[in-house]
């Protein structure tokens, strides 16, 4: 990915063209995806409304229990959305796994994407030893990939950000730390 992607992704309302997310949350998402493999896993990372900061990880059940499809249970969905409303939160990240294909939105993902304000995070678990983690905005059927900046809470986040700035996003950020 290039700087051009950053610029393009920055055209939206409150988008800054990157998903910044704490490492413990990414680790929990990956663990969830591995646990449910070969079925697809899905969930939400909620954050304070308007903050664009994912802070509360909520793994959801895949009501479809499928290797090629995921769907929130409708009642669990309502409960979580109510809870976020009560806490003045919003779904900053909506994630799911692809278990045999790349971490890129399928036509199904695009046609069903109903939260234009969310980062759609995809994790591929097709390789047993490495995960592919990528993030997208999906608005009106248009997919825009954005870098994923994984923030290590154990060190000065500013230092991490400046170090990571300009790096190839997503894969590099993740793989560097994982090895």
């Amino acid at each position: 990915m290039t700087v051009a992607t950053l610029v393009r992704a920055g055209g939206g309302a409150r988008l800054d063209g990157v998903l910044s997310i704490d490492r413990p949350i990414i680790d929990a998402i990956v663990a969830h995806a591995r646990r449910d493999h070969p079925d697809e896993a899905c969930g939400v990372v909620a954050g304070p409304a308007g903050s664009d900061t994912p802070s509360r990880h909520i793994p959801m059940a895949n009501a479809a229990r499928s290797m090629t499809f995921y769907e929130f249970d409708s009642m669990e969905h309502l409960r979580l959305w109510r809870e976020m409303d009560d806490r003045d939160e919003e779904p900053v990240v909506i994630y799911h796994s692809h278990t045999a294909t790349e971490a890129y939105p399928s036509r199904t993902d695009v046609s069903l994407a109903g939260e234009p304000g969310a980062h759609y995070l995809l994790v591929s678990t097709r390789e047993p030893d490495t995960e592919e983690i990528r993030s997208y905005r999906i608005v009106d059927g248009v997919v825009t990939e954005e870098p994923v900046r994984i923030v290590d809470a154990a060190v000065d986040p500013n230092a991490v950000q400046s170090y990571m700035f300009g790096q190839s996003p997503a894969t590099v950020d993740y793989e560097c730390s994982d090895r």
């Binding site: 697809e40 899905c42 939400v44 959801m60 479809a64 499928s66 290797m67 090629t68 499809f69 995921y70 769907e71 929130f72 409708s74 969905h77 309502l78 959305w81 909506i94 799911h96 692809h98 278990t99 045999a100 294909t101 939105p105 399928s106 036509r107 199904t108 993902d109 046609s111 069903l112 994407a113 109903g114 939260e115």
Partner: peptide, 15 residues
């Protein structure tokens, strides 16, 4: 009344 778009998707084929 509450209206919510289903949160759903998946690798392929389902559409």
């Amino acid at each position: 009344i509450t209206i919510l778009p289903a949160v759903a998707g998946g690798a392929f084929g389902f559409a």
